[in-house]
Amino acid sequence: MRHFTPRRPYTPLTDEEWAVLAPHLPHTDPDATAPGRPLTESRRARFEAMLFACVTDTPWTRLPRHHGAQPLSVAKHFRRLAHEGVWSRLLEALIDPHCPRLLKAMEYWVCRLARRAMRLLGMQGLGLAQRLGFLTALPQLPWFLPNLELSRALWAHAKEIVETMLEDPTWRPKRGYLNLLGRCLVIAGGRAVWQKRFAPP
């Protein structure tokens, strides 16, 4: 069911919340030079820093020092996790019938983490969030984002019109119809630039 997730302000993770989140995160450090180098205390500190940045909408460069990780290192780690599909898998975990209560309670936080990653995830990430119904994970309100299904339908219709015109040179659609179809395609393509004022609550 499509919905906007109620806001939940950032608070430091409890040990119980970290125990629920940790299994969804890689157990090795992707930034390490030696393959398979285990993450120790920095694993939780990095996640805390990422969570703080995403929930409070803080730029990476302005992360507080007390989170114990370098801002650029945190940003790099966040991008790696996005490319590994961590944020997408966390969204999917939320709809699992056996989703732990504590993880479900962190839905707003997970949505904000996924939202920050949407430029990296692209259409696949947008489609996943919309399909699962997590509107808060979207970087813009749904009606400002690309609608892949509508775009495909409109392009298929445009192709039919062109093929009909090629087969029968005397046939033309009604005056203004192609212009209307073009405007519909622009709308289906969403806003070219994402703006924070159109972001979900």
Score class of each variant (00 low, 15 high):
residue 4 F to D: 13
residue 6 P to D: 08
residue 8 R to E: 12
residue 8 R to W: 05
residue 8 R to K: 14
residue 14 T to K: 12
residue 14 T to A: 10
residue 16 E to M: 06
residue 19 A to I: 13
residue 20 V to T: 14
residue 31 D to H: 11
residue 32 A to L: 06
residue 32 A to I: 06
residue 35 P to N: 05
residue 35 P to Q: 06
residue 37 R to T: 15
residue 40 T to L: 15
residue 50 M to E: 04
residue 50 M to A: 07
residue 52 F to Q: 00
residue 53 A to N: 00
residue 53 A to T: 00
residue 54 C to Q: 02
residue 56 T to F: 00
residue 56 T to C: 08
residue 58 T to K: 00
residue 59 P to L: 06
residue 62 R to N: 13
residue 63 L to S: 00
residue 64 P to E: 05
residue 65 R to L: 12
residue 67 H to Y: 14
residue 67 H to K: 08
residue 70 Q to P: 04
residue 76 K to A: 10
residue 81 L to T: 04
residue 82 A to Q: 09
residue 83 H to N: 12
residue 86 V to K: 10
residue 88 S to C: 09
residue 88 S to I: 00
residue 90 L to V: 10
residue 90 L to D: 05
residue 91 L to H: 06
residue 94 L to N: 09
residue 94 L to F: 12
residue 95 I to E: 14
residue 98 H to Q: 15
residue 99 C to H: 12
residue 102 L to F: 03
residue 105 A to H: 08
residue 105 A to P: 01
residue 106 M to I: 07
residue 107 E to S: 15
residue 110 V to C: 11
residue 112 R to C: 11
residue 115 R to I: 03
residue 119 R to I: 07
residue 122 G to N: 12
residue 122 G to I: 11
residue 124 Q to G: 09
residue 124 Q to M: 06
residue 125 G to I: 09
residue 126 L to P: 04
residue 137 A to T: 05
residue 139 P to S: 07
residue 140 Q to F: 01
residue 141 L to I: 08
residue 145 L to C: 01
residue 148 L to A: 15
residue 148 L to S: 12
residue 153 A to W: 11
residue 155 W to A: 14
residue 155 W to C: 13
residue 164 T to R: 15
residue 170 T to I: 10
residue 173 P to D: 06
residue 174 K to F: 10
residue 176 G to H: 12
residue 177 Y to G: 03
residue 182 G to W: 10
residue 183 R to E: 15
residue 184 C to G: 03
residue 184 C to F: 03
residue 187 I to M: 08
residue 188 A to R: 04
residue 190 G to K: 02
residue 195 Q to W: 07
residue 201 P to K: 09
